[in-house]
Design a protein around this nucleic acid. Structure first.
Lengths: 301, 301
DNA sequence: TCATTCCATGAATGGTATTCATGAATAAAT
DNA sequence: ATTTATTCATGAATACCATTCATGGAATGA
């Protein structure tokens, strides 16, 4: 079926470069005879010569010239492909698709990703936020390779590792009446506007671990996507929000907001990094996990 | 040395298209086992899998995805190459490089070339006018494939065929004193300005076959490249020129010029088409010669 | 649970690419 | 003109490797 092979192009190019079959044969580490036979067969199959044999010099025919051009175009691509697949094999190259199920974690993620990109220049990092089947499904379906989530779900084949823990706090404006308290009680939010990320209630710890157990609901509930808009709203007294303490503290000065403990003991949270057990063999994925662990050690809460 | 072969790309693409090794094997007319072995070997050499084997479904790995892209890019080029070389082999495709050693023949050439181009859409026609080693040398050195010349030079390996004969005439303006004569004598040009193409004198028949034998020279000699400029100059009485009769007659009305026989018997010329004997096997070259012959039969002088 | 479909594997084989040995043709050197 | 050194082509022998055959295990779907 196929007559033209990579080898033929390799020969044609070598002959062009070396000027003779014999020299080309040496370059390709085979006998001159091998090349002669190979090209003879090709020419027979094509029904046309690749070279004019004039004395002992080979001059490309029109077909030969065409094939030479082809060779110069295709062979580098073969070479590059082998090199790149080699990089895939050694785990030096790939793409790391990270799924996020945790809004405020974006900030944390950036702190891991930037040194990671520097260390693994051949790995593309891709962050996704929306999944049809949920984060776990996306992980299983190979839609993503890593999942950043506060809700580890133990399934065979998946591993979840805590990489970050922090306290979830209420954030209020500087002049807010609650701002002087050491901690806040659920009932104190009855007349407040609560601002959250636009996700379902059961994924909001303010509700699941603070308000709902006490049977309390805030006066209003607003959903806003962007974290700094949330902070601005809070700063201007338009509402209160629940955010990680570190995030609030980082922005306290700039926005004029204050963190308050949720209940006397606070609400502690953990962020997990989930991955498929089998993908742990991939160097660049493991490297990411290690970077995340290192970060946790260097920045304990 | 080389691990990745066209075959592998062929397999990878077929598996992608057919969805399974078995189906791909059928498409490629080999056993499923053959493909399995082939890809196994490739994977061993690369050190990485091309597909994730999940149950009985094959999902491309990152390396596999990369190779699939490569396959979709390169395989069509292989296919196209085989097709084109096939055309070369059947003489349907090529490039015909025509050398011109005869200025006024350009008009004639166009009449052959335009139907030729229509009949042989895959043949590129290239017309060259300048050669370092002369037309014959260019023909020998494969710089051109056909030579249009008035001077056939018989050499072994070369063939010259007369394809066109015509009378070379003197052309003068409508009101020129000579314009009423039936023919002109060399001596009558003593006071004229003679316009010729800018080539050496020994290639100008007005000199070699008319003036020089009579020991006559014109008052002035002007060299002009473009034929219609020559005609305009002649029409405005600025000089006389020697051109093929058919060319003059074609333009007699438009420019207001008159053809005059050179001497009582006229100067008859022949144009030859030269080619390398061995290239006569090439279909599209032979076709050109046949077209030229047909034209001669259809337009006898 | 059974039948079916798919891929992997080891051994056997058949084909083919490569080598070896040699000849013919050309170009360079004497 | 001879000689010498290259170069490519060719046929036969060989060694290698791709393919097949036969089979088993694993997953899917009825």
């Amino acid at each position: 079926m196929n007559i033209l092979e990579r080898t033929h192009l390799e020969i044609i190019r070598a002959v062009d470069q070396c000027g003779s079959l014999t020299a080309a044969a040496e370059k390709l580490h085979v006998t001159q005879s091998a090349l002669s036979h190979a090209m003879r067969k090709l020419e027979d199959q094509f029904g046309t010569a690749v070279w004019h044999r004039e004395g002992r010099v080979l001059r490309p025919t029109q077909a030969g010239g065409y094939l030479l051009e082809l060779a110069n175009r295709l062979l580098p691509q073969f070479a590059r492909a082998e090199e790149q697949v080699g990089q895939f094999a050694r785990g030096e190259r790939g793409s790391l698709r990270i799924g996020m199920e945790c809004h405020p974690c974006h900030q944390w993620l950036l702190k891991i990703v930037s040194p990671y990109l520097a260390a693994w220049p051949d790995v593309d990092v891709d962050v996704k936020q929306e999944f049809q089947l949920g984060g776990i499904g996306a992980l299983f379906g190979h839609e993503i390779d890593l999942l950043v989530t506060p809700d580890p779900l133990h399934k065979p084949g998946l591993v979840f590792e805590p990489v970050f823990d922090y306290e979830q706090v209420l954030v209020v404006g500087h002049q807010h009446p609650l701002s002087k308290l050491r901690h806040v009680q659920p009932a104190q939010l009855t007349d407040e506007t609560l601002i959250t990320y636009p996700v379902s209630l059961d994924r909001l710890d303010v509700f699941t671990r603070f308000l709902t157990p006490a049977g309390i609901a805030p006066k209003r509930h607003k959903r806003i996507e962007a974290t700094d808009i949330v902070l601005q709203m809070v700063a201007s007294g338009r509402g209160v929000a629940a955010l990680p303490r570190w995030l609030v503290e980082e922005n306290a000065e700039r926005f004029g907001v204050v963190p308050l403990r949720l209940g006397p003991r606070g609400v502690r949270k953990q962020i997990f990094l989930g991955y498929r057990e089998r993908s742990y063999g991939t160097d660049y994925l493991r490297a990411f996990l290690e970077l995340a662990r290192d970060y946790q050690v260097a920045h304990p809460q």
